[in-house]
């Protein structure tokens, strides 16, 4: 009795086409669910690969001696201690060097922003002879790695004498082992990855509508005023992108630091290398499995400013890349 009634209902259900719809609905839902699970697995897996060394470093930096020698301890120390941090900060001369590093990084980033945005704007909006060739030179700057020109750069700063002007006045200058070469290079648009930033700004300014400038021009603003008051405020996405990239890369850079023999007191990324030896020799901690914990603490302190900066700028940064010139 019941069965025939169900059959009849089913036939009606099928006839009205409801069945097809619900099958479709279920299959798309299933697909989405599958995709969601797939994505979750991938994201969790890769996040693990990225985060696991970091988690290892952070947790080890809190280990006390008994935790190190206790094979049962994994990630969670039984007797957490801040001793690694206090000593690492002391031996790194952390606050002092960090102040210098931040000053160096931030000032270079500001110069980068001013110079590269200016050059990018010049390339984007003005026509002048050999423009294509010159822009080709910007691309060459991006493509050809710095190590091809490192020796001549080193030499030209060992005896800094552009066009023989300085030696004409009898001044002999050796700019090495100071951050001055880096400032000079950046000021003239040849700093760390300046070519890339010029490219980003150029692409972005080219994408802005010309009408804005024409309006400014009609209102009587000169090109410099237009650039400062109209174009730059509109270029915030690019500015944020370049700021983050420049801060991160400049902070992490060791190549130029090594090339120009910039002192360890200015670059924390250089002084971290001698931390373990300092700990071993000055504090007489001879067991490398203990002394490396101080290096971990130092590394945590090293990346801390960047992480803070990134967390603050993160949301703007990713939106910035999406809207800025990297994507033409």
């Amino acid at each position: 009795m019941n069965l025939s009634r169900y059959k009849a209902e089913y036939a009606e259900y099928k006839a009205t086409g409801q069945l097809n719809n619900s099958i479709k609905k279920w299959s798309t839902n299933g697909k989405n669910l599958l995709f969601g699970i797939f994505r979750l697995v991938i994201i969790v897996g890769i996040s693990y690969v990225i985060l696991s060394p970091l988690i290892g470093i952070v947790s080890s930096s809190f280990f006390s001696e008994e935790d190190v020698y206790n094979p049962m301890v994994y990630l969670l120390p039984t007797a957490p201690t801040l001793e690694r941090y206090t000593k690492a900060i002391l031996r790194l001369d952390y606050w002092n060097i960090m102040k210098n590093t931040l000053l160096y990084t931030v000032s270079l980033t500001l110069i980068q922003l001013v110079v590269t945005s200016m050059v990018g704007y010049g390339f984007a909006r003005f026509d002048f002879p050999f423009k294509k060739l010159l822009f080709g030179c910007v691309v060459i700057m991006i493509v050809i790695p710095t190590h091809t020109v490192m020796l001549p750069l080193y030499m030209s700063f060992a005896t800094f004498d552009p066009f023989g002007i300085l030696s004409h006045f009898g001044v002999e200058t050796n700019l090495l082992s100071s951050p001055v070469p880096m400032y000079i290079l950046t000021l003239f648009g040849c700093g760390l990855r300046s070519g890339l930033y010029i490219y980003i700004f150029n692409q972005f300014f080219r994408g802005l509508p010309k009408e804005i400038e024409e309006a400014a021009f009609v209102d009587g603003a000169g090109p410099w005023r237009t650039y400062l008051r109209v174009m730059l405020p509109n270029a915030v996405p690019s500015i944020i992108t370049v700021t983050v990239f420049s801060l991160v890369w400049q902070y992490n850079d060791t190549f130029y630091g090594k090339l120009f023999l910039i002192s360890d007191d200015i670059l924390i990324s250089k002084s971290i290398l001698s931390l373990q030896d300092n700990i071993t020799n000055l504090d007489k901690i001879l067991d490398p499995s203990i002394s490396q914990l101080y290096v971990y603490a130092g590394i945590v302190m090293l990346i801390l400013p960047l992480v803070i900066m990134y967390v603050l700028l993160q949301r703007h940064f990713i939106e910035g890349v999406e809207r800025s010139g990297i994507v033409g």
Partner: peptide, 15 residues
């Protein structure tokens, strides 16, 4: 336009 790109141009040629 040339004055805008001048700093880079000098740097590019010299360095």
């Amino acid at each position: 336009g040339l004055t805008f790109i001048l700093p880079w141009l000098i740097g590019f040629i010299i360095f």
